[in-house]
């Protein structure tokens, strides 16, 4: 549904997005992750036809967003970062206005239906200006899903919502994600992990990683990190543990604590536990950390981190672009 090739956007001399290439197919929820200023909003604005790309191509459902803008825009539901609402209209009137612009048949029924979906039916006759931040966000979402769009683009959809509403909105997104293509940007990594089928981590305008949340985790972790706490005499354990199979870099942290690494595809904990007990020490605690998405994110968006998996893809699109310029 969404096909982005070699997308680049310059704001004057500043390059906001460089050579982005990705696709999203029907029934997929693609998460767009990145620190502030990574180019998430810029990319979404280009995808929705609000601003044109400097170079590269965006196709929505086969329609080019620049050449066949209106056709492509018909397929898109978009919730921008700042929720676009008219404060002087009632919720119902606002949605009716948007429904009319979207040329929806039986607009009133559809507006009622959508209001129910976002649990705003009681505030339908209230003015948008009097709504709380969370309610505004929900009305914005209602506007985006009015016309049952093939492609739903949401720029930080859960921002400003309370926990119950966040769960509600995520549920809506997941429901929509079964039939539509959803592209959502977020700061909240656990959200991305829960909701998205696939993640796209973007930093300084580049894609630094693209994979499922699980794959990202296992690929980047490489090793498991185990912390062991015993009562006294941890020092004596260092050579014992070091001799166990599959264990590397054993470090003594203090008189009670040891840290070591094991390989991913092996659980060394039972062996370690037995070794501790048979040495006559008291095992107090043993914890195994897998790398959280937070850590992956921080690692990938670190300034010195090399651009990871996209090399093959971006190289090929680079050639395509050169051909075009010729």
């Amino acid at each position: 549904m969404i096909k982005v090739t070699g997308l680049t956007k310059d704001y004057g001399l500043r390059r906001a997005v460089e050579n982005l290439t990705f696709t999203a197919s029907k029934g997929e929820i693609l998460g767009f992750l990145g620190p502030n200023g990574a180019g998430k909003t810029t990319t979404m604005r280009i995808l929705t036809g609000y601003i044109p790309p400097t170079s590269g191509k965006v196709e929505i459902g086969g329609f080019d967003i620049v050449d066949k803008s209106i056709e492509a825009r018909r397929l898109i539901g978009y919730l921008p970062e700042t929720v676009p609402l008219y404060n002087d209209m009632t919720v119902f009137d606002y949605l009716m206005f948007m429904a009319n612009l979207r040329n929806i048949k039986q607009a009133e029924d559809r507006v009622d239906e959508v209001l129910e979906m976002v649990h705003m039916e009681e505030r339908a006759e209230g003015f948008v200006g009097n709504l709380s931040k969370g309610m505004r966000q929900r009305v914005g979402l209602a506007q985006a899903i009015l016309h049952k769009p093939e492609v739903l683009i949401l720029d930080e959809p859960t921002i400003g919502l309370d926990p119950a509403q966040i769960i509600e909105v995520r549920k809506i997104i997941q429901e929509l994600g079964t039939e539509h293509t959803v592209l959502l940007s977020t700061h909240i990594l656990s959200e991305a992990q829960q909701v998205c089928n696939r993640l796209l981590i973007i930093n300084k305008g580049h894609i630094v990683a693209e994979d499922t949340p699980e794959q990202l985790q296992s690929r980047l972790t490489g090793s498991k990190h185990i912390t062991l706490r015993v009562r006294c005499g941890a020092e004596d354990m260092v050579p014992v543990i070091h001799d166990l199979p599959g264990i590397s870099s054993v470090r003594l942290m203090d008189e009670n604590t040891l840290e070591f690494e094991t390989s991913v595809n092996q659980d060394a904990r039972p062996d370690v536990a037995r070794a501790v007990i048979s040495s006559g020490l008291d095992l107090l605690e043993m914890t195994q950390d897998t790398m959280s998405l937070e850590e992956i994110f921080l690692q990938l968006t670190r300034d010195d981190f090399p651009v990871l998996p996209q090399e093959s893809v971006s190289a090929s699109t680079g050639e395509e672009l050169e051909e075009k310029e010729e």
Binding site: R45, T48, G49, Y50, I70, R73, R74, I76, Y78, P80, T82, V83, P84, L85, Y86, N87, M98, L101, R102, N103, Q143
Partner: peptide
């Protein structure tokens, strides 16, 4: 100013 222009310019309105 209110960001609604973004909405109108991304809806199927010429």
């Amino acid at each position: 100013k209110s960001g609604t222009l973004e909405l109108l310019l991304t809806s199927p309105v010429r």
